[in-house]
């Protein structure tokens, strides 16, 4: 569980994610395919926002742009109050460093490094930021304790259950207290109680750390847990309401959403 101790005071933070006029086109000329059109988004610190839409609608493309692994074709993007993309180029000189310092990632599968212990999986990113091994491991232990997997700190990832692995992955994403957290279907492999537990964690950690969280999901049962929802359809992103998403026509909902 999350530590009951009061969280350390956070400095005043600007909006976590601000996207305006973002677009992405693959190819050129007659073969050009527009994946994102004039995306407008704003996610405040501590807010947990959903990103839903059918397969092929552009969710992953948007996530890749927000994660600084895909260069948009135009628009502006601020992450953690810092303008990182302006018009047609990245302003940050080192996107790897940008991701390391500003963005946490959670995936559908935990993708823990199988050759590192749970503790080192979490501590790795802190070490990359220049913290000593001892400091990084101590921070990892604290976070693992918060996520109730401290007792598995010395275990190798393949010894953990799916839920435990996902919690470790969340710990890894949060070890550097990033202002942005991008979660790509984090509850997909989990049953309902475990999915709710993960959402509990995300909500609490986002609140404690002031992290802006974007959750890409097809999972209908977690929709009520999201503070706002952005709906992506044919590359157009609009803010939607949970009820409307749930009641949307079948063609709008992905096969996975239908199955759920």
């Amino acid at each position: 569980m999350i530590s009951s101790a009061p969280p350390p005071p956070q400095p005043e933070r600007p909006a976590g994610i601000v996207v305006s006029g973002l677009r992405k086109t693959f190819g050129s000329g007659s073969a050009a395919v527009t994946a994102l059109r004039d995306v407008q988004m704003r996610v405040e610190p501590g807010e947990v926002v959903g990103l839903v839409g059918p397969s092929g609608s552009g969710k992953s493309t948007l996530l890749k742009c927000l994660g600084a692994v895909l260069t948009p074709s135009g628009g502006h993007m601020e992450l953690g109050g810092q303008l990182v993309f302006d018009g047609d180029h990245w302003l940050h000189p080192d996107l790897t460093r940008l991701r390391r310092e500003q963005i946490g990632f959670i995936f559908q599968s935990p993708y823990l490094l199988p050759f590192l212990s749970v503790r080192d999986n979490v501590a790795l990113l802190a070490m990359l930021l220049g913290r000593s091994n001892q400091e990084a491991r101590a921070a990892a232990d604290q976070l693992l304790a918060d996520l109730d997997v401290a007792h598995r700190a010395d275990a190798m990832p393949n010894r953990l259950s799916g839920g435990e692995q996902q919690r470790v992955a969340i710990a890894r994403a949060l070890i550097n207290r990033p202002p942005i957290l991008l979660a790509d279907e984090p509850t997909a492999p989990l049953d309902s109680p475990r999915a709710m537990a993960v959402m509990d964690l995300l909500e609490r950690l986002a609140g404690q750390m002031g992290t802006s969280v974007i959750v890409v999901t097809h999972d209908e049962k977690i929709l009520p847990r999201l503070q706002r929802i952005y709906v992506v359809r044919d590359g157009v992103v609009g803010e939607g309401q949970r009820e409307r998403v749930r009641d949307a026509p079948v063609r709008f909902r992905s096969r996975r959403l239908r199955n759920t």
Binding site: V69, T96, L113, L125
Partner: peptide, 16 residues
């Protein structure tokens, strides 16, 4: 390759 992609995504420098 999958682990490498994840490592790169989460900010591991390619040189490491």
């Amino acid at each position: 390759l999958r682990e490498i992609a994840v490592l790169k995504l989460i900010g591991m420098p390619s040189r490491l």
